[in-house]
Nucleic acid binder design. Sequence first.
DNA 1: TTTATAAATGAATGTTTGTTTATTTATGGA
DNA 2: TCCATAAATAAACAAACATTCATTTATAAA
Lengths: 196, 196
Amino acid sequence: MRTRNEHKEQLVEEKALELLVTHGFDGFSMQKLAKAANVSPATLYIYYKDKEDLITQLGMIHGTKMVDVTLEGFDPHMSFEEGLRLQWRNRARYWLENPMEAKFFDLLSHTPYHKVIAMKMNDRFREVMTVFGRNAVEKNELVRVPFEVYWSIAFAPLYNLIRFHFEGQSKGGKPFTWSDEIMEQTLSLVIKALKP
Amino acid sequence: MRTRNEHKEQLVEEKALELLVTHGFDGFSMQKLAKAANVSPATLYIYYKDKEDLITQLGMIHGTKMVDVTLEGFDPHMSFEEGLRLQWRNRARYWLENPMEAKFFDLLSHTPYHKVIAMKMNDRFREVMTVFGRNAVEKNELVRVPFEVYWSIAFAPLYNLIRFHFEGQSKGGKPFTWSDEIMEQTLSLVIKALKP
DNA sequence: TTTATAAATGAATGTTTGTTTATTTATGGA
DNA sequence: TCCATAAATAAACAAACATTCATTTATAAA
């Protein structure tokens, strides 16, 4: 029997991400993807059940990859400050090195697909973070607040900073770009907020 | 000459928001909107130049309304804590009372339309906030940090909390809902972070 | 070398898309 | 009352859409 062309499959994956990010979910279609990846539309339906399946699979792949990267070198028994620093650094590095994935994920999180993927993929991260948070509170390194409050303070500013970076957000004309100093400055404010 | 049916026009606006929020930009079409608002597709092209114009206008309307509400009772010469508190309260109230608008805006901010609208409508808010921030720094009520860092700490957590609320985000099953205590708790951490 | 089988395709399916055109309908001002 | 004019429409348009079908192509195992 004939074997699957792995190179072709990977190209489809790449181009799908590219098209989704540059033209939005709105302007994305199977035919455009097929053309961009030099593949027959019918081939896409060998790889994926349908359009929804394509996007869901893409989300899962990059979602788990992102969680893996975020938790690289992480141990829930680290000190709170050390652990949070490591996660910020890991995420920032990954996103800056993989802007397509970063933007795709940001996009995806604001579509109906989000729920399906978040459910499956956040579980691991959520679990680790719950242990980490509980330990930190017990060691008196972290204020005791509901999970959602903690999350909103600990990570929302990082996401926002990255969005600013990719949008080149500016204050009265001066464009904004990421720097380690900016991250460090923001992170230290966050840590200050979360100390008991 | 015949006069425009204002009621019909407003219904179109309402239904457009509803469809966009429930089915996403993806699943939105002029024909669906026409059907939902009991109007001929051609009528939409009397109200709006094209689909892009429809969405842009919708964004502008709700964008300026949101800025107005946020700045209700605000004065850039308020103390920093008082001013930030007021803005958080204003935004939270508006979003909880107008979930459709809130979700629409969240959605919109992750599409190519975003840039067009943000440019025009954020100007006023940005200007007021710049004065407010400068004053607060001079009075030694606010740390001196780049605008983007300030923004990421001061508002990103609020946005995140609202998203959690609308998604019913949960930790191990318990669903999350907004409460004034939760907001107060988060806001006080934010203020702690931003104090010099 | 042959054969069975999955990969890959080009062309077509019927549907939905955004938008326009020709026509009818309502109404403020003459 | 009647007329000019804009509102509103039903029906249509080509283009783009997701998906399928009949067929060809490549290859692992026999």
